[in-house]
Amino acid sequence: MGASPLPSSVERLIEALSRLPGVGPRTAERLAFHLLRTPIVDAKALAGAITTMRDTTRPCVECGHVADQERCWICRDEGRDAGLLCVVEEALDLVAIERTGAYRGRYHVLNGTLSPMAGIGPGQLRMRELFERVAAATAAGTPIREVIIATNPSPEGDVTLLYLQERLGDSVAAVTSMARGLPFGADLQYADAVTILRSLEERRGVE
């Protein structure tokens, strides 16, 4: 192999882009060349936006959500029900739940799921912070009534749910998980067999 046909600055950007999730080497090349041809102000605005975002945000000390202060806006909101805690894998899952506007409790962001193959154990997730939060609330006389574990229905998400359920055990009155099955508004006749099967398995009584 001879020298690279591209200047090293371009090579470096391609290399950096190809480390982004879902971006392969070919896509990284296309993105880099797009940025080469794009007006310089737009390219600089993109670089600036990345720098500003990283300079002005940090994880909330309480819940781990992206914050521009020590505590995020949800943890600062006195109107929120502190007795209700929803555990999510990522801040993006929190965003999805917030969009509903229906949830009035607080959150706890784990920053991932248990995954031995990825080298992620309880110590790599914000689990100790969760247990400490639950214990501190109890000690303060305002115990958390319910922890909703809203991990994804992947094997890793389910195992994280089982692990937390066992660890939280007696320290919380109720540990619950999200319902799974047919998407709301979906027609039975258009649902695939697996979805219908799982919904049947998790059927519940009608009150």
Binding site: P153, D158, L161, L162, Q165, S177, R180, R198, E201, E202
Partner: peptide, 13 residues
């Protein structure tokens, strides 16, 4: 079990 998960056992035929 206090938590229902998709790993719960099935009572379907």
């Amino acid at each position: 079990m206090g938590v229902t998960t998709s790993t719960s056992s099935c009572r379907c035929a």
